[in-house]
Write a protein that binds this DNA or RNA. Structure first.
Lengths: 228, 228
DNA sequence: GTCTATAGTCGGATAGAC
DNA sequence: GTCTATCCGACTATAGAC
């Protein structure tokens, strides 16, 4: 697997390198400012590889979005799996549903707001919501739909609320709080005089969002012993 | 003020027409996809007028952003004015602060989520948060900073909370809920099978956000008679 | 102050050698 | 499968007539 020391450098596995670089560049600049030249340069791969492997810039973009969604699925999979296994043994108790909900939101915040790569990926996701492209289908069907469905179900189980529409609205509002801190990062950074969120800030954000969520869902502070 | 019926059509007040069209086109397509040709065509003005009046595409964009911020200021000005006048007579009571807060959020939701032009403008605002350009200063200093400051102050007065940092985080989370419904519009529309928000949906959204806000801020349901 | 014509730049995709 | 060279198209901005 060692590369030739000579100049041209064949750069094997160009496909993977391109996807990696594409997530980075598209995330940083957005679809239309990012150029295939930038991406090829970052991947240290020839520009012609892009139409070759992905039949164009747009194909590469879709592949990158798909990969990002995969990363998020991966992050959430432990909790999702746990919920699945627990559900086999019968319906969740409210306090269980609540702690699953908190686990999901916590993971989301840590990844989308806190980590170094998450925020860049979050930009792509959010951008697709503002200006949906052909890649939005991937985001909707593999990420937004399952997430809103899952969260509204958990809110229902935790709160006892049953109206599905109301639950969906609550779920969107709750997820929206998480996204707000990603979107408002710029304003927060200026207004609070930070330069990006540190671990402390992420912890504070998590605390506020989880507290709001518990309250919004109508769960009293002394919950946990009730409902059984 | 009547125009010549002849072909070339001089198109007076080109400046205003350009700003009007720019808000529309930039809002619909985003800065880089929107072209000066589109805007000039929509404004029924010659392309060369753009560098002439605004010294380029970017200058026109800034002018459009500034105008949008002005429109939002205008929408909120009645409440802001009322708060200012009331504040002269002494500090606000908690229930007064709450109802001002609700008025502001309600206006925001109606305009940014519900109305026909608001959502298009909201796209520009949100986009600037994801990919700040030279126009972000305008948005931050004339809109985000005052809004977060005002809302966190009102939350403080309504809830009795005093820690400024916590209040700011709460304010961002609360505003984030409003934005969530603009961002998630696409997903909501698909997931709930609507096509755009109707008046009914806007009312539901308003109800949910205001309810969450009251609860998040820690105001009991039977509030209003307390604190005096 | 508004227009036409054009210059100058750049990005994406293709052709074809290796 | 990777590379070089090149083409084509599109966009912004400028020059200069009216």
């Amino acid at each position: 697997m060692v590369q030739k020391e000579n100049s041209p450098a064949p750069a094997a596995n160009a496909r993977e390198r391109l996807i990696e670089a594409a997530m980075d560049i598209f995330g940083q600049y957005g679809f239309d400012i990012a150029t295939t030249r930038m991406i090829a340069a970052a991947a240290e791969v020839n520009i012609a590889s892009i139409p070759y492997y992905f039949s164009g810039k747009e194909g590469l973009y879709q592949a990158a979005v798909s990969h990002i969604v995969g990363l998020i699925e991966e992050r959430l999979s432990p909790v999702v799996k746990e919920i699945g296994e627990r559900s086999l043994k019968g319906p969740l108790f409210p306090d269980e549903a609540l702690s699953f909900l908190e686990a999901i939101l916590g993971t989301l915040i840590e990844y989308m707001v806190g980590s170094t790569d998450g925020p860049r990926f979050a930009r792509i996701i959010l951008r697709e919501h503002l200006f949906p492209s052909s890649a939005y289908d991937i985001i909707f069907s593999r990420m937004m739909e399952p997430m809103v469905h899952g969260i509204s179900t958990l809110i229902g189980l935790a709160s006892g609320e049953t109206a599905p529409r109301l639950l969906k609205l609550r779920a969107v509002a709750v997820v929206g709080q998480v996204m707000a801190f990603r979107i408002a990062r710029e304003a927060m950074v200026r207004g609070l005089g930070m330069e990006g969120y540190s671990q402390t800030e992420v912890a504070e954000i998590k605390e506020v969002v989880l507290e709001h969520t518990r309250r919004a869902v109508g769960i009293p502070a002394d919950f946990g012993k009730q409902g059984r």
